[in-house]
Structures are given as structure tokens and as C-alpha cells.
């Protein structure tokens, strides 16, 4: 897949800071602490897995980063800019993308329209009432992204008629729209067949080097293959960070997450 020049330009301008910095992020739901004092740094282009059991706070962490939830305490910096109080669309315009645990697509629109919308969301003319022309660059870009996730034959299919695995692939195409610099993948392999998982791994590993991502994934084979660093979460805290090998061989991680008998 080829990325636009804009992506490279924006990457250059962002080289001064980290892609993502969380400092002391806490999220309370009443008395329940979903996140407690989270400190996390992701460098530009870094691929990180966030692992943890159900209820560890992984998706809440994503929701705080994207702006779906405002943190109770702490700060979030995206490419050097404090975005803690920014609404979701402002963070997206700074190069952040995400996919969802449950596919959140536009069922009443076709595959190409879904991706076109995603491309339009981070460009000018979001309120344009003129139909895209045949030589519209965003429409061409949408077709490229559909090709990148191997869905070209399905581009005119209504999304509600797609199979589950195809919807997950489309989620990735949406996340790649515009000029992404950091993508949050929330369990992209959930519910996929072994063939579809292999295809997903190929797509993730084939992403250009300047696009970093954080992946939440319960399938360790997928997570440890596509990540270069791992953060382990438990009860709303990050308790261990390291390379995939270090995490895989860590006794505490094995006890908590992989099962005591692992290794």
C-alpha cells in the first residue's frame, strides 16, 4: 500500500515528540476505577500490544485516548499536543484512528461509500452538497484502500450484507483513511476464521513504517506477532511493559494472564 505525501509531511512535522503520551490518566465511573494512574508513551511508528484479561480497562483506555470518555484525572498528549479536552473529531484530524471491538459501520451504505466517508471526514468539504466527480481524488483513494484490504469485488455491496470477517476488514480500511499516524485496533481478530486471521496479520504487518498502532487482542499469536512492544494491564493499571519475548517469558504475566502452567 502507498501512503500519500501528506502523511510523510505530517510525520516529519511530528518527529519532535512522541505519538502518544498518557500521564497519570485515571477514569472513574462512580466508585469504580476503570483506569488508575496510567502512564504510557508510544513513539511514532511504534507497534504496541495492550494485553489483559476482560475488565482490565483496555477499551476504556482507548475510549479516553479517542475522546469518547474524558479522563477524570491526568493528561493526554497526541504528537506533542495536549488533547485532553478535545472532542473525538479534533483528535481524528490530528492523525488518530481507531477500530471497534464490535463493528461500527454504516449498514445502510455501500462499502465504497463507507470508505469514502472515512476519507472525507479528515479532509475539507465535509458539508459539500456537490456529488463527487468521476475523477474525485478521495473516491480514488477510497478505491485504493478497499484494494488494500482485498475487498475490491465487494465495493458496491451494502455493508449490512457483508459477512462478519469482511466487516472487520472494512473496519481496517476505515482506520487507514486520510493520513493516519496512530491507529488503535480494538480486538481486530475477534471472531475471525484462521484464514482471515492470517490475512489480518498480513495487512497489519504490511502497514507503512511511519504508521504506529496500539492493538488490543486476546489472541496472543496475533498480538505478539504484530507488536514490537507490549503493555500488560490488570485492574485498570499497567503493571508490566517489555518486548513480546520478555512478556511471554515473564512469570507474573504467565500467572495472571497466560495461566500458571504456561512455558
Amino acid at each position: 500500500m502507498t501512503m500519500t505525501d501528506t502523511a510523510a509531511d505530517r510525520l516529519g512535522s511530528a518527529s519532535s515528540g512522541n505519538a502518544l503520551e498518557l500521564r497519570g490518566v485515571t477514569k472513574l465511573f462512580g466508585a469504580l476505577a476503570a483506569l488508575t494512574d496510567i502512564n504510557l508513551t508510544v513513539r511514532p511508528g511504534e507497534r504496541r500490544a495492550v494485553l489483559g484479561s476482560n475488565g482490565a480497562g483496555k477499551t476504556t483506555l482507548f475510549n479516553c485516548v479517542t475522546g469518547d470518555f474524558l479522563p477524570t484525572n491526568g493528561s493526554i498528549r497526541l504528537f506533542g499536543e495536549d488533547v485532553t479536552s478535545f472532542p473525538p473529531q479534533e483528535r481524528i484530524r490530528r492523525g488518530l484512528r481507531r477500530t471497534y471491538q464490535i463493528s461500527l459501520l454504516f449498514g445502510g451504505l455501500s462499502v465504497i461509500d463507507n470508505v469514502y466517508l472515512a476519507c472525507r471526514g479528515v479532509s475539507r468539504g465535509r458539508f459539500s452538497m456537490l456529488r463527487p466527480r468521476r475523477n474525485d481524488t478521495l473516491m480514488a483513494r477510497a478505491a485504493e484502500l478497499i484494494e488494500a484490504v482485498h475487498m475490491t469485488p465487494l465495493k458496491d455491496t451494502m455493508v449490512r450484507n457483508l459477512a462478519y470477517g469482511q466487516q472487520r476488514q472494512l473496519e481496517i480500511a476505515l482506520a487507514l483513511s486520510g493520513a493516519p499516524r496512530l491507529i488503535l485496533f480494538d480486538e481486530p481478530a475477534a471472531g475471525l476464521s484462521p484464514t482471515e486471521r492470517s490475512e489480518l496479520i498480513a495487512i497489519l504487518m504490511g502497514l507503512p513504517g511511519h504508521i504506529g498502532y496500539i492493538i488490543i487482542e486476546h489472541d496472543m499469536d496475533v498480538a505478539l506477532r504484530v507488536a514490537t512492544s507490549v503493555s500488560m494491564m490488570h485492574n485498570g493499571r499497567i503493571f508490566k511493559e517489555g518486548s513480546p519475548e520478555e512478556i511471554e517469558n515473564d512469570p507474573e504475566v504467565q500467572e495472571l494472564y497466560l495461566g500458571g502452567g504456561h512455558g
Partner: peptide, 17 residues
């Protein structure tokens, strides 16, 4: 198209910018 996207999934539309 964006309006139809808002109808189908407002949260996702915000996440698209």
C-alpha cells in the same frame, strides 16, 4: 452521505472526524 452515516452510527462518524 455523512448524514446517512450519522443516522446509522453517530459515534463512528465522530471517530471519523
Amino acid at each position: 452521505l455523512a448524514l446517512q452515516g450519522v443516522r446509522d452510527n453517530p459515534r463512528r462518524m465522530a471517530a471519523l472526524g
